[in-house]
């Protein structure tokens, strides 16, 4: 059974490569700023967008995109303007997002509520041709934004106060980071699912940093691991006939476990050399 023989698999594979490529590139900044759960928050908010799309009969990708971006601005607003701590602001997004998603999907006509599962855990068959064009456009946009603002995002993630003294607009960069996370969530929701898409942002980064010594090498290895986990997980889900989200995340966790074990002798060797 050749998986390339199916159009839906070709589209799903392209989407998987895209998410494996850009998710760790954003994740590396989130992990550095200890905002690993931000992607989860965005995923929950995007779920409200999907529920709303079912209710209004609009396309899920742009609706989820819009709500996730609004969520990104909202979380930065809550963090800066109120006395709410970052983790509490995220918790508020989690609760509001999932409640809104399930409520709107339940109010929608037909079998919308049951279709929600495909968005929660990913599905091989939900990547439509029009979606793929939108996903490629979003990925290109993310890469352009990173090419322009990547160094400033790095400076902010390293030390916000020093970045501010260097004239970098820290609040604007924090909001940009949240918006980029929102975009990645929407890119990944078809294949990995909204509940697990954050994992492909974070787990490859956590795996890579076990053996790397610099930010750039961590980002590079994380992208390689992200693409590998996405493609290997998707292929496995095709043959085993299970949703792709869990298999992708389990492969990513496997790379983490492997590199965590490999890191022990590598660190010993480096200590000897130093």
């Amino acid at each position: 059974m050749n998986l390339f023989a199916y159009d839906f698999m070709q589209r799903a594979l392209i989407a998987a490569v895209l998410v494996g490529l850009i998710a760790p590139l954003i994740g590396v900044f989130l992990v550095q700023r200890r905002l690993s759960l931000l992607g989860d928050g965005m995923g929950h908010v995007a779920l409200t967008g999907v529920g709303l799309a079912f209710l209004l009969g609009t396309a899920p990708v742009p609706t989820a995109m819009l709500t996730a971006v609004i969520g990104a601005f909202l979380i930065e607003f809550i963090r800066y303007r109120s006395r709410t701590a970052g983790d509490v602001a995220l918790a508020l997004l989690f609760y509001g997002g999932i409640a809104g998603g399930v409520l709107f999907a339940s109010l929608a006509p037909g079998k919308a509520a049951s279709s929600l599962n495909a968005y929660l855990f990913g599905s091989l068959t939900t990547v439509a041709g029009a979606d793929l064009v939108a996903l490629v456009a979003l990925c290109v946009a993310v890469l352009i934004v990173l090419a322009i603002f990547g160094r400033e995002l790095f400076a902010v993630s390293l030390d916000t106060e020093i970045a501010q003294v260097q004239g970098i607009k820290v609040r604007a960069m924090s909001t940009l980071m949240a918006v980029l996370a929102a975009v990645v969530v929407v890119v990944g929701m078809r294949v990995v699912g909204l509940l697990l898409v954050s994992a492909i942002m974070i787990v490859p980064v956590a795996a890579a940093q076990q053996i790397t010594r610099s930010f750039i090498s961590t980002a590079t290895l994380a992208v390689a691991l992200g693409v590998f986990a996405s493609v290997a997980g998707l292929t496995t889900s095709f043959y085993v006939e299970v949703p792709p989200g869990p298999t992708i995340v389990l492969v990513a966790l496997g790379t983490f476990a492997f590199l965590a074990l490999l890191a022990v002798p590598i660190r010993k060797r480096r200590r000897v050399l130093v």
Binding site: Q32, S157, I168, R213, S214, I216, S217
Partner: peptide, 16 residues
């Protein structure tokens, strides 16, 4: 910070 950052990356970040 939780990601490894090299000495060189830290120093060159002053130019950003």
């Amino acid at each position: 910070n939780s990601i490894p950052v090299s000495v060189w990356e830290t120093v060159i970040s002053g130019r950003i």
